[in-house]
Simulated assay, not measured.
Amino acid sequence: MEEEEEEEIEGKGDEVMSEVHLGCPPHLQGPYISHFTFPLPSSTAICRHNDQLQVEAPSSQLLSLDDDGDLVLSRRKNDSSNCLNCSLMIQHTVTSSLPNVGLQVWLAALVLADFVLYKSFNSSDFNGITALELGAGTGLVGTVLALVARSVFVTDTGADILDNCAANPQLNARLLNDHTTDVRVRELDWQEPWPPRVQTCTSPSQRSRYSWTSSEIEEAEGATILLAADVIYSDELTDSFFSVLERLMSRGSEKILYLALEKRYNFSLDDLEVVANGYAHFRSFLKDEEEHEKLGAEGLSSFIGKQLDLGQIPQYIREYERGNNVELWKITYCPMKCSLIT
């Protein structure tokens, strides 16, 4: 079987390992911290150590937390005229059970983070926005977006995944301390309809750390950018994902979803050929412009999908190989006849 047709999740029994973690200690107990390096605009202070330029971290005493314990970050001014290298620290496990794959870093998340960096360096589209990451896992993409966004909701479900996700903005507090970005980790279970339930407790100490408030739901519905990486691998979850997406994108502001996925190939006994699990089901939700026009004329809603050319997006993050099986999609939602977002 050719390399591109092999499944790129490796593991034994119920344990799986992301190919991103190949080379990490395979039997490591507890969390592991990986460093991902990429360019950073030169407005960040630097120092020289052993004849190498390194990012100089502001004092940790300047950190501040809100009532829910979420990190409040101050934003630097955007300046891409000169770039330095910085290191993003991401806490993750090396292997996990299938229900806890969000504890690992996956290839599509690194590709989507590259896209966020590309947009940040080449446009102001992400500057000062409110954004929401769906199925965030480790929160890597949302943490990168925090370099330029005003507010980022990083969402997933499960106590272990949420706790690990919340640790990563804290790990990178020194890098992000020159920003005024509000990073909030919130629970969002796709098996439940949008909007999520609001806890009625008035005291912050009595509320779940990852619960939503009414004002936060309103703010999330006003987000203009949604992000999702490697959330397409189960038809059931894909159904739930698009159900939540439809409710979320039909409320509040007009939104664009950027979704990165990795096509993993397996031999199917039903089809008697090598197929990418779940990919055809994902594509069934998307319409092209011609199909959208037909549905719009009938007053029907539709998701409009456009695949972006990854060849036009540089690889900023060094510590991975992009390969040929990753795709990046720009997705909009039209609840009725409407003009496409270009």
Rank of each mutant, 00 (worst) to 15 (best):
E216F: 08
V101Y: 00
Q104E: 11
L107F: 01
S211N: 06
E236D: 12
I90Q: 08
R207M: 02
A131V: 03
F121Y: 09
P41R: 06
I225L: 08
S97D: 13
R48V: 12
L84E: 09
D125S: 13
S205L: 14
L176I: 06
A109V: 04
F38S: 13
G30Q: 10
A159F: 10
C47Q: 13
R209D: 10
I33K: 10
V148L: 04
S96P: 00
S234N: 12
V94F: 02
Y316D: 07
L73I: 11
T155E: 03
L300A: 14
W329S: 12
L340P: 01
E19M: 14
L176S: 04
P39C: 01
N82P: 01
T180A: 05
Q52T: 08
R207K: 05
S208K: 01
A167C: 14
E262T: 13
E10V: 13
Q199C: 14
P314V: 12
D68H: 04
L40W: 03
G252H: 04
P314R: 10
Q206A: 15
G135M: 05
C338R: 08
S87D: 10
Y118M: 06
V16N: 00
L53T: 15
T181R: 04
N325H: 12
N122T: 15
T138A: 14
P31W: 00
R184S: 15
Q191D: 11
L63S: 10
Q54H: 07
G128Y: 04
E6H: 11
E2N: 12
S74P: 01
W194D: 05
C83P: 02
L112K: 09
F36L: 13
V16H: 06
L145Q: 03
Q307W: 00
T181C: 15
S268C: 07
F285C: 06
T224A: 13
